[in-house]
Structures are given as C-alpha cells and as structure tokens.
Simulated scan of single mutants.
Amino acid sequence: MTIRLLLADDQALVRGALAALLELESDLEVVAEVGRGDQVVAAALEHAPNVALLDVEMPGIDGIAATAELRTQVPSCRVLIVTTFGRPGYLRRALDAGADGFVVKDTPARQLADAVRRVNMGLRVVDPTLATETLTAGVSPLTSREQQVLRAAVAGGTAGRMAATLHLSEGTVRNHLSAAIGKTGTTTRAEAIRIALDRGWL
C-alpha cells in the first residue's frame, strides 16, 4: 500500500529535496506540498495524506500549532516533525500537541523513510539524542502567560507597547518579564529570550 505524504516547509529547496528523496521509495508518494503552517489543514483535507511531515518554524502558524490543528480536524493523518531545530523544548511541545514522531533534517534518507513507515503504522519515532537531551533539560518553567510576554518581547518595543498588544497592564507585563528572567536564571530580557528560544520553550 502506498503511503500518501504531505510536506510542509517554508524553504522550497528543502521541501523539493525531501520530496525527491522520499519519492525514490516505491511505497511513498508526496501528494501535497505547502510552505506555510496555516496551509497544512486545508491541504490535508483536500489530499487526504496518511502522514504529514512538518517543519517547526514556518510563517502563518508554526509546525507545532499546525500539529494540534491536524489532530483535531484530520485525526486520521499522522504527524512527523522534521526540523533543523533539534531543541528539547520543541520535542516536548510537539509530542504534547499530538505529533507521532520527531526527527532532525540531517537524518539519512533511508532512516527518514523508515520513520515515515513506522509513524504510519502507529508507532512513535523520536530522535534518540534529542530524547535524551529533553529528559535532561526537564520541562519549561515558564507559564503560558510568561511565554506569551516573552514572544511579544522578541519583536522588541517597550513594555507599554507589549501591554497594548497583549491587552494587559504595563505593570502586569513587567511582572511577567521579571518572572521569566528569574526562571531562566538570567539578568536581562534579551538573555531570557535567548535561553527560552535555545531550549525551545517559545
């Protein structure tokens, strides 16, 4: 039986290379390709893939949010995250969102094809090195509101501007920033953002 695949990656060259490699396998067929996270569900509804291979960082919505949407709207489609960013926090968040597997893009083609087959069979596939790092790193100490404020801080701007964007008081934004700085063991907003991004907490 042929396994129908949906590829989602914002880099056209990467998407094309993945498609070419996977289609060398006689039992795999790429039926749809998209370059944005917010196009994933529509493409899955239209093309009925068995497995969606999603990058994490994409415009529209990221691959983790797209995973959660797929699990709700197209539950028959399994999800394999294939990303450059092997960050422990990403793995934990992806699995929490309902991903069936998580591998990095430098996985050899044969192993990637095998991961697709295993995910299609209902098995969970996780990069072993990343799994170890995730267990070592532990869970994110940030609350959802602290994550939201740090995400807003990535774009820069004053606490007042962030407060207006998030519909919070300026004092509340400052409190959340202060808490996030403390929990990341840093001393500045920029350092807290860097740590949270590096660990995949945002």
Rank of each mutant, 00 (worst) to 15 (best):
V34C: 06
V82I: 13
V119N: 02
I64E: 01
V103M: 14
H47T: 10
R71Q: 14
V41A: 09
A115W: 00
E33D: 06
A115V: 01
T72L: 13
A32M: 13
H47E: 07
A43E: 08
D38H: 10
V79G: 07
R93Y: 00
D114I: 09
V41M: 10
G35K: 09
A52W: 03
E57C: 06
D55H: 12
R92S: 01
T84K: 05
R118K: 13
L112S: 14
I81M: 12
L70Q: 08
G60Q: 07
D100M: 01
V79F: 10
T107A: 13
V119F: 04
A109K: 13
V82S: 09
V119L: 03
P108D: 15
G89N: 05
L53E: 04
A68G: 06
A115G: 02
A66S: 11
V119G: 02
T84R: 10
M121V: 00
E33P: 02
P75H: 12
L95G: 00
A99R: 04
Q111P: 04
L91T: 02
E46S: 14
A99W: 03
D114L: 15
R36Q: 08
V82G: 08
E46C: 08
R118S: 05
K105C: 10
D106H: 11
G101N: 02
L91A: 03
V103K: 04
P49V: 06
A99G: 09
P88W: 00
L70N: 07
A52N: 04
S76Y: 11
M121N: 11
A66W: 02
G98E: 03
G86S: 09
A66D: 04
D114A: 15
G101D: 01
T67I: 04
V119S: 02
P49D: 06
F85V: 05
P75Q: 11
A99F: 03
A115F: 01
G98R: 05
L54A: 07
A99L: 06
H47A: 09
L112R: 13
R36V: 03
A65V: 03
A109D: 15
Q39A: 14
P49Q: 07
P88H: 02
L112I: 13
